[in-house]
Amino acid sequence: MSETMELRAKRGLAFYARIYRKVLAQDLKSKMSYRADFIISTFGMIMTNAVGFISFYILFQNFPSINGWNYYEMLFFYGFSLIALTPLQCLFDNNWSLRYAVESGDFIKYCFRPINVFFYFISEVFDVKGLGQLAFGIMVLVYAWIHLAIPVTVITMVQLVLLLITASLFMIAIMNFAAATCFWIQRSGYVMVLMFRFKDYAKYPASIFDGLFKIIFTFVIPIAFIAYYPALVILRPDEIPLLSYLSPALGMLFFYLSYKFWMLGARKYNGTGS
């Protein structure tokens, strides 16, 4: 045991990448055996996105602009948020089963492997249907991009990719925090359900909030960073606020804190005794 503990510290990125590939292949193989489920789930994913888009469209039929943002700028936020939420859907979906694993005692199996517990638990599931959301998000973003006539340069492209990756960390971190509450509170599913609802509001510009709520949605439940602040870098390059510059660093910090919180719970976990 002590030997494996030492090994754990030395394992690098290449090692984890190799493991991830193997676990992923296993997961996809087992998913493929339920083809009907895959088709229905993908259809469900497309439906939710379509319905989200229809509500958005209906809103703009009645109100041509919101808080000084026109239709295409709002679409830009919308597409941006969908893409930034994809890594959460695809890679971190297993957080939803955390509370079942903890309550039933199955979680103990993850503690006995000589690899990082968080990594092992999260890597077990890859949610393919999230890719439908990605495709939808890219379509919306490209459509808005063309209509806004934003120049396509190497710089904007690099910015876009970098901002999208760091923006995705915020919602992942929120859900890590929410999922990890189950280590302390029994039947804490409602915390996750509650937090997950906030992601739907990431597509609206944070400029609609004032005072206290701006602070809450920026620093406490940081949904303003999922689309609004990072997207400003591309939408309004002349007047980028400080928070937009800080968003990549804040994303990493927030993710790191949520990881620490998750691991704190995992370390406290003793199993159910069975």
């Binding site: 009907a36 229905i40 994913m45 439906m47 939710t48």
Partner: peptide, 13 residues
């Protein structure tokens, strides 16, 4: 069918 997630999300939306 066993595809509860898909069915439920369609209904909900």
């Amino acid at each position: 069918t066993e595809s509860t997630w898909g069915i439920n999300i369609v209904k909900e939306s």
